[in-house]
Design a protein around this nucleic acid. Structure first.
Length: 713
DNA sequence: ACTGCATAACTTTTT
DNA sequence: GTTATGCAGT
């Protein structure tokens, strides 16, 4: 092992960064301001621990996104490689809370009464299940299904004492209680866990099985948690349980960047770290390597108005830069014109710019304006591959095949493609199951039932045969073969092929893409199961920065990113802070959200607000956000749109247009009928590729690239 | 079982 | 203003 490499790496760190890296024994909290090199500290620290002779498998790093986990793991491996350190990559466990819980529960769920091959339901599944319960019980709830999902999540995330997991926080409202209990028993009965269950059941496992907890404690003697300010109460107890004995815990976070309390993140976790671990060392990373001084001054001015925070001021390491620009727009159209004209004026590569807004609907006017000016852009977070209907259908098939108790998945796919098994027939099946039959027997019993016509029976028969055939092949076929076979045998593929509509076409493409994903699991043991798990707890791929595009996203999505030039739009009362935020606690979170936006900017920051804005089709007067008043004028430059922005409307863009003719995400294209549009997403490839395009005039359409005569601009 | 029209809803969204 | 949802009608 080459110690010099790690030594020279350490010498590039600031004293406080270095202290954070080198404090590996005992509890440590690293309060890492924006742009303070947090990721670097975490990764170097991981490698540093390993070079101190601690086995890699003793290190557990928990994050919130798969992206962060993978990125950090890569970087740690990289450092270790450079040190000439020999190690096995698979020994390193950098994972999200949810994957970690899943990893444990796949082994031990049976200890808490579950089956080890339970399935996982996502948020849409939760809604569907609750809907079913409401219909089944006839309860006409005063809460929307969406709200119920939130309430149930809050009930289970905000526990105060993990020895009373099941009993704390139950709803007093009788009706609510009934729906909640029905929901829980529905999941349990069908061997399903939602995202919250994964965490909560891990905690139960720890509580009820000290031997397992002990095993976990001794396996993971060094624990790191990233984005600690975003942990919820259950996650907090999980961490605490694991780290309590060896006490080598390092949490990294920044309460000023906590913006997910609406998802039950609890700021107390990071604020009270010293109370939980009285011998904790608290290290502040205050130097900011990202932004120019005016931006930092504005950020400090804004965040200093919050009371729920440790007192700290971030310091800019950079020099130079200009004041933060403030623009008062007439309405949102004017605001978009302003932003677009600035983008053209500054003449930077498009990838340098980001436009942030509070709510997704605000993106529209920016999109229209960017299309008009032929500026390529990408919308981040708008479309999710795994939430598409066809992908979910296939997953439901696999889930049911793997777990016959997963009647929820069964319901989704039993009549797709159409087998003549509608609502009524399905109810017959359910009745039989409720009488104690298992699914397959229930289905079979219907074949001899006088209640059904011959064609119905035929449909059921073919379904039974399909499932039995596929079940026999779960461990025979590789995941991609398995799914291909399933698509053929079920007639799903045929159904789409015969449909012939553009929509069906793009679905076929998505399914091909799913097969691609599946083939990545072909070599793995239990690959099919593993793949379904990963897909359910993963979100879409984020390759949005591959081409030279302006980036559009919500302030929430912006966390963790940085851009040379940032526009924050719609900084008005009612948007930031949002009108649904009422109490001071919520207002503080809104302020943090604004702070997160500000601190993404490296060189230039533009803040804008409108005097008028149309909300749901109605024009309303707007006032600048109270947060703007918190910024001293001396850091600001008030600007006006000098020239009517039409001047050089035609392409100031010195974008090296890519002549390959390939159409990619973000490209601006012209359609013979629909006119100018921007490519939001591409499905499939080759002749059958399809593009989702937002047109300036006619909205979003799905276009087959080989048929439509699109001209790339 | 599917189609079409009226009606409600609508902040953010790491897993 | 747009989009998803639900109910009535074929």
């Amino acid at each position: 092992m080459n110690v010099e490499v790690i030594d020279s790496l350490l010498s590039t760190l600031t004293p406080s960064q270095r202290e954070a890296v080198e404090s590996i024994d005992g509890p440590v909290a690293v309060i890492a301001g924006p742009g303070s090199g947090k990721t670097r500290v975490v990764t170097v620290r991981g490698a540093y621990i390993a070079t101190k002779g601690i086995p890699l498998r003793s290190i557990l790093a928990l994050t919130f996104t798969n992206r962060a986990a993978n990125e950090m793991k890569e970087r740690v491996c990289d450092i270790l490689d450079r040190c000439g350190f020999t190690f096995d990559r698979s020994e390193i466990l950098f994972s999200t809370f949810h994957s970690f819980s899943l990893w444990l529960l796949r082994r031990f769920a049976d200890r808490i009464g579950y089956r080890n091959d339970f399935s996982i339901v996502d948020e849409n599944d939760q809604k569907a299940i609750i809907n079913e319960i409401l219909k089944g019980t006839g309860i006409d709830s005063k809460f929307s299904v969406k709200r119920l999902v939130e309430i149930f999540s809050a009930i289970r995330c905000n526990i105060n004492d993990y020895y009373e997991i099941e009993y704390s926080n139950l709803p007093c409202d009788e009706e609510l209680y009934e729906i909640f209990e029905s929901y829980r028993s529905y999941l349990f009965k069908h061997s399903l866990m939602d995202f919250d269950d994964l965490l909560l059941n891990t905690l139960m496992l720890f509580r009820d099985h000290p031997s397992i907890l002990n095993w976990v404690r001794n396996r993971f003697k060094y624990v790191m948690v990233d984005e600690y300010q975003d942990t919820n109460r259950v996650q907090y107890y999980i961490v605490k349980n694991i780290a309590e004995e060896h006490r080598n815990i390092c949490v990294v976070g920044d309460e000023d960047q906590s913006i997910y309390s609406w998802r039950n993140a609890d700021i107390r976790n990071i604020m009270d770290f010293e109370k939980d671990f009285p011998d904790a060392k608290v290290i502040f990373l205050k130097e900011n390597f990202r932004s120019t001084p005016f931006i930092i001054s504005v950020a400090n001015a804004v965040i200093s108005k919050n009371s729920m925070r440790r007192w700290k001021v971030i310091e800019s390491v950079k020099t130079g830069g200009s004041k933060v620009k403030l623009y008062e727009a007439i309405d949102e159209r004017d605001e978009a014109r302003f932003v677009v004209s600035k983008i053209k004026e500054l003449k930077r590569p498009y990838r340098d710019y980001a436009i942030f807004y509070r709510t997704n609907y605000q993106s529209r006017v920016f999109e229209e304006e960017l299309i008009r000016e032929r500026i390529p852009y990408v919308l981040v977070g708008a479309f999710r591959f795994y939430e598409r209907k066809e992908v979910k259908d296939v997953i439901s098939y696999v889930r049911f095949i793997l777990n016959l108790d997963d009647l929820f998945s069964l319901k989704r796919i039993i009549n797709v493609p159409n087998r003549g098994i509608g609502e009524a027939t399905f109810r017959l099946i359910m009745e039989r199951i409720e009488q104690g039959m298992d699914v397959m027997s229930a289905l079979k019993s219907l074949l001899s039932s006088p209640l059904l016509t011959v064609t119905r029976k035929q449909g059921i028969k073919s379904f039974i045969e399909l499932i039995e055939y596929m079940r026999e092949r779960v461990n025979v076929f590789a995941p991609s073969e398995f799914i291909a076979e399933l698509l053929e045998r079920s007639g799903y593929k045929k159904m789409l092929e015969e449909d012939g509509t553009g929509e069906a076409y793009s679905r076929l493409e998505n399914i091909k893409e799913l097969l691609n994903v599946a083939s990545e699991y072909d070599e793995l043991e239990d690959g099919l199961r593993y793949m379904i798990d990963r897909i359910t707890i993963a979100t879409s791929v984020d390759n949005y920065r591959e081409s030279d595009c302006v980036t559009l996203m919500t302030l929430h999505s912006a966390k963790g990113l940085e851009f040379p030039v940032v526009f924050i739009a719609g900084v008005e009362e009612g948007l930031i802070p949002h009108s649904l935020s009422e109490d001071s606690y919520e207002i503080e979170e809104e302020r943090r959200l604004f702070y997160v936006g500000i601190t993404r900017a490296k060189d230039e920051l533009f803040i804008s607000y409108c005097k008028r804005r149309s909300v749901y089709g109605k024009l309303k007067d707007s006032k600048p956000s109270r947060f703007i008043k918190d910024i001293p004028d001396k850091y600001l430059e008030f600007i006006k749109l000098e020239v009517p922005s039409k001047v050089n409307s035609k392409s100031t863009s010195k974008r090296d247009s890519d002549d390959s003719g390939t159409i990619r995400r973000g490209d601006i294209v012209e359609h013979p009928i629909f006119g100018l549009g921007s490519v939001i997403d591409i499905y499939g490839s080759g002749d059958s590729a399809k593009a989702l395009i937002r047109f300036e005039k006619v909205g979003v359409k799905l276009i087959a690239l080989s048929f439509a005569n699109l001209r790339k601009l």
